[in-house]
Design a protein around this nucleic acid. Structure first.
Lengths: 336, 336
DNA sequence: GCATGTCATGTAATTGTTTACATTGCACAT
DNA sequence: ATGTGCAATGTAAACAATTACATGACATGC
C-alpha cells in the first residue's frame, strides 16, 4: 500500500505538496498537480484515513445509537439524520445497544477517543449524570428521550401530553375501561406515556384500575403477551391504549386470536406512527411523531456542537399529530 | 485530554511502561502498576484509540452494510453477527446504503484504509468485479447474495430452489393462476427467486403469463402498488407469490382494500420469515431463512479472514424451511 | 570478584498525515 | 543592481500510541 512519501518521491516533490493537492489547496501549479495526480493514479495511492484522522482528530463519521434495530420507528429518523449528514459531508454509522450498557459505554468511549465526531443517541442505558457530564465535553444529542432537569442537547416531542391526548380521544369515543400497555416503564419515555394516560383519566375523574395496566417488553411479542395476560385474568375492557405501535400490533394479534374484533369489540391505539401503522389490518390510530424532522433537527444540533457553536436552545420539543385510522372505530357511548 | 506522556511524566516512568500496563504486559512490578494506575485515575486518562489504531492498524470494529434499515429481515442476522463478534472482542457498526453506490464506495474505502477490520455486506450496488478484487485483499463477506461464478466469501441459501419449492406448494394446493411479485429484479437475489417461480411453472408445463408478473420496489408499499396495478388491469389470479415478506404484507393490504379475503379469495406467500410474518393477520406462509445462522456463519468467516486463515470453503449454502401459516389457506382444487 | 542471566524499565524509532514556518525563485518597482 | 512581495514548494515538527532494542540492577554460580 503506497504512502504519501512514495508518491512524493516518485513525483519528485515533497509530501507537503502532495498533501496540498489532495486537500485541494489552491497554491499549487497546474502542471505540478497533473504530474502528482499521474503518480497517484499509477501507484494506486489512497490516503490512509486512519493517519489523517489521527492527525486532524476528525473522522467525518457520526454515530447513531439505537436500542433495537427491530424497532422500525427509527428508520425515518435516521433518514433525516442521513440527509443532513450527507449535505454536510458526514457519514452515518449505526450501532445497536440492546440492553447492553457495556456496549453503550464502549461507543461513548469511542467518541471520547475521537473515533467519531459526534453521537446521536436514542438509548439511555447509561447513567444520566454521566451522559450529562460527557455531553458537556463532547458533541452528543439525545433524541426522543426527554431528560427532565438534565442540561443536554435534546430533541423530543411531549410524550406525556401526546399520550393524554390520545387517551382523551378514546374517552371521547365513550370508552371507560381502557387498558394501558406501557411497555417497559423502566424507560423514561414509556413512563411519560403512562403518565399521560393516568393524567387523562384523573382529569375526568375516572378511576385508574391497576389490573388494566400491564407492563411488558416494548415490542410486538410484548404487546401480544400483555393482552394474553389481560384476557387470561378475565379483565373487562373496551379499549387498549398502547405506548408504541409495535405493542399495538402484538395486542391486536392477541385480541384477534381470542376471537375479538378490532375495533368493533375492542379499540386499540398505537404510538409513533411507524410505517406499518397505516398498512396493518386494521390500520392504527396513533400519535404521529415528526420522525424526519426529529432526525433533521438532531443532526443540525449535532453539527452545531461539532462546530463548537453555542446552541440557541438546548431542548427542542417538536409537535406531534393524532392520526385517526381504523383501529379505534366509531363512537360507542356517552360523552362524559 | 491527558496523553500517555502526561501519565508517564506524572508517574515518573516511561511511556513504554505505561503502555505495558495498559496492555497487560506481564513484565511490570505490581507497585509500579499501582502507582501508574493511580495517575491514570487522577488524570482521567484514556488512551487515544485513534492513535492506537493508527499504530496497530487494528480497530476492533467490523462494519455491516445493509441496503435498508427498513427491512426487518436483517435484525436477526445482525443478532447472530453481534453474538459472534462480541465473543471475539469485536464491535459491530452498521451502515445503511440505500441505493447510493457512493456511500458504498466510501465504506469500502474505509476498510481499505483500515478504519474497520472487516465488512459483511448484504448490499451489492458496486460492481461485482471490484468487490471480488477487493475481497482478495481485505476481509469481506457477502451475505444473502449469491454471486454466481464469483470467488468471494459468501453465505446464502439457495434462493431459486426455495422459491421453486414454495411455488410448488401453491401448485399443490391447486392454484394455477399465480401472480409473482418479484420486487426489484435488478437485484440478483430477487431475480433468483423469480427464476424459481418460472422454473416451477415450466416443470409442470403451466404457461407463464407475463401479465401476472409485476415488478416493484421490494418493500410494503411496493407490494401494495403491485397488487393495485394487477387489480386495475383486471388480472385474474387465485394466488400471489411474493419474493419478500414485506411485499406480501403490502399485497395483502391491497387485496383486503379491494374487498378480497386472504386466503379464501386469494392465497399469498412471502419469503424470508421476518418477525412480522407470524404476527400479521393473516400470518404468512413463507420461506424461513436461517437468519441467526447466516449471521453467525458470516461473522465466523470474517474472523477467519481477519486472522488471515485460508477459508475451508468460500461459499456456504445454508438450508431453509417452508413455513405454512394462514395466508395460503387450504387445498382449493385439483392436483396436477 | 567476575561473567552470565534475568527482570524491570527506559530510549527512541515508527506509523502516514497535516501544517507552521522556512526557503527559493521570480517579477517588478525603485 | 537591489529591495520587496508573492507564489510555489520544501522542511520538519507534531499528533499519541506501540515496540524493538538498549540499559541497568541485581542475583547466581563459579
Amino acid at each position: 500500500m503506497a504512502t504519501i512519501q512514495d508518491v512524493a518521491r516518485e513525483a519528485g516533490v515533497s509530501t507537503a505538496t502532495v498533501s496540498r493537492i489532495l486537500n485541494n489547496s489552491p497554491k499549487v501549479l497546474p502542471e505540478t498537480r497533473e504530474k502528482v495526480m499521474a503518480v497517484i493514479e499509477k501507484l494506486n495511492y489512497n490516503p490512509n484515513r486512519l493517519a489523517q484522522q489521527f492527525r486532524t482528530q476528525e473522522t467525518g463519521n457520526i454515530l447513531v445509537l439505537i436500542p433495537e434495530l427491530a424497532n422500525t420507528f427509527y428508520y425515518e429518523i435516521i433518514f433525516g439524520i442521513e440527509d443532513v449528514a450527507k449535505a454536510n459531508g458526514y457519514h452515518v454509522l449505526i450501532a445497536e445497544i440492546h440492553n447492553d450498557s457495556h456496549a453503550e459505554d464502549y461507543f461513548f468511549e469511542c467518541l471520547k477517543q475521537k473515533q467519531m465526531d459526534g453521537i446521536i443517541t436514542f438509548s439511555a442505558g447509561i447513567a444520566l449524570e454521566r451522559l450529562e457530564a460527557m455531553s458537556r465535553q463532547f458533541p452528543i444529542v439525545v433524541s426522543c428521550r426527554y431528560c427532565e432537569g438534565m442540561q443536554m442537547p435534546n430533541v423530543t416531542i411531549d410524550n406525556e401530553k401526546a399520550s393524554r391526548d390520545i387517551t382523551n380521544y378514546l374517552l371521547n369515543l365513550g370508552h371507560r375501561r381502557i387498558c394501558c400497555l406501557p411497555g417497559n416503564t423502566g424507560i423514561r419515555l414509556y413512563q411519560d406515556r403512562l403518565n399521560g394516560y393516568l393524567k387523562a383519566l384523573k382529569e375526568r375523574r375516572i378511576e385508574v384500575l391497576p389490573e388494566l395496566i400491564c407492563e411488558s417488553a416494548a415490542d410486538i411479542q410484548g404487546g401480544y403477551d400483555a393482552v394474553e395476560r389481560l384476557i387470561n385474568a378475565d379483565a373487562k375492557f373496551t379499549a387498549v391504549l398502547t405506548c408504541g405501535d409495535t405493542l399495538a400490533i402484538g395486542a391486536i394479534k392477541a385480541l384477534q386470536n381470542s376471537g375479538l374484533n378490532v375495533p368493533s369489540d375492542v379499540a386499540v391505539t398505537g404510538f409513533d406512527d411507524i410505517e406499518l401503522a397505516s398498512l396493518y389490518s386494521p390500520s392504527l390510530t396513533t400519535v404521529r411523531q415528526p420522525k424526519r424532522q426529529i432526525g433533521i433537527r438532531s443532526m443540525e444540533k449535532l453539527l452545531d456542537l461539532i462546530a463548537g457553536k453555542k446552541l440557541a436552545n438546548l431542548q427542542d420539543v417538536l409537535s406531534y399529530e393524532l392520526v385517526i385510522r381504523e383501529s379505534t372505530g366509531d363512537f360507542i357511548g356517552q360523552q362524559s
